[in-house]
Every structure is written in C-alpha cells, then in structure tokens.
Amino acid sequence: MDTYKLILNGKTLKGETTTEAVDAATAEKVFKHAANEHGVHGHWTYDPETKTFTVTE
C-alpha cells in the first residue's frame, strides 16, 4: 500500500488529508467520495510523482 494525499482548494473548505490505498484509482475514489460529502466539486488533478490529488473549485 502507498500513501496518497488530497489537497482541497474549495470555495468554503480548504485542507489536506491522506489515505492508504493499493493504487491511485482506489485513492481517487476515496478522495472524490470525501470531497462530495463536504460539498467540494471542481477540477481534479493528479501528480503521480508526489501521489497528490488536488481539487480546485
């Protein structure tokens, strides 16, 4: 398992979190669910070198 990071750049919610996942696709599902639960919808990017997802509203 690897550690993946999410950076939230929402209009009303900003922050960072991490998750352990077997691959980037699994981490993305976890992060998108969490972002949706917090009402953050926007443009997603992924940097494979740093294993970091970013969502920007």
Results as ranks from 00 to 15, higher is better:
Phe53Ser: 00
Thr45Met: 10
Gly39His: 06
Tyr46Glu: 00
Lys29Ala: 13
Trp44Asn: 00
Tyr46Arg: 00
Thr54Gln: 06
His33Arg: 15
Asp23Ile: 02
Asp2Met: 10
Asn36Phe: 13
Leu6Arg: 00
His41Tyr: 14
Gly42Ile: 02
Lys14Ala: 07
Glu28Pro: 00
Ala25Gly: 08
Thr56Ser: 08
Thr26Ile: 06
Glu28Tyr: 15
Lys51Ala: 03
Glu28Gln: 08
Gly10Phe: 13
Thr56Gly: 04
Ala25Ile: 10
Trp44Tyr: 02
Thr54Arg: 05
Thr50Gln: 06
Ala21Pro: 00
Leu6Gly: 02
Leu13Gln: 09
Lys11Val: 14
Asp23Tyr: 02
Lys32Tyr: 06
Tyr46Phe: 08
Glu28Ile: 07
Ala27His: 00
Lys32Asp: 02
Phe53Gln: 00
Ala21Lys: 01
Glu28Arg: 07
Val22Tyr: 13
Leu6Glu: 03
Asp2Ile: 13
Ala21Cys: 08
Ala25Leu: 09
Thr56Gln: 07
Thr54Cys: 07
Thr56Cys: 06
Phe53His: 01
Glu57Leu: 06
Thr45Ser: 13
Thr54Pro: 00
Lys5Pro: 02
Lys14Phe: 11
Glu57Arg: 03
Leu8Lys: 00
Thr17Ser: 11
Tyr46Met: 01
Thr3Pro: 04
Thr12Ser: 11
Tyr4Ala: 02
Leu13Ser: 09
Lys5Glu: 03
Thr54Asn: 04
Lys29Leu: 12
Thr50Ala: 07
His41Glu: 11
Ala21Trp: 01
Val22Met: 12
Thr19Tyr: 11
Gly39Asn: 10
Lys29Asn: 08
Val30Pro: 00
Gly10Arg: 03
Val22Thr: 12
His43Trp: 13
His41Gln: 13
Val40Thr: 03
Asp23Asn: 09
Asn9Thr: 06
Ile7Phe: 05
Thr45Gly: 06
Asn36Glu: 14
His43Ile: 14
Thr17Trp: 15
Asp23Ser: 06
Thr56Leu: 05
Leu8Ile: 15
Glu57Lys: 03
Glu20Ser: 10
His41Cys: 11
Lys32Ile: 10
Ala35Gln: 03
Asp23Ala: 03
Val55His: 01
His33Leu: 14
Pro48Gly: 06
Ala24Ser: 08
Asn9Arg: 09
Leu13Gly: 08
Thr45Tyr: 08
Ala35His: 03
Val55Asp: 00
Ile7Gln: 04
Ala35Glu: 02
Ala34Gly: 04
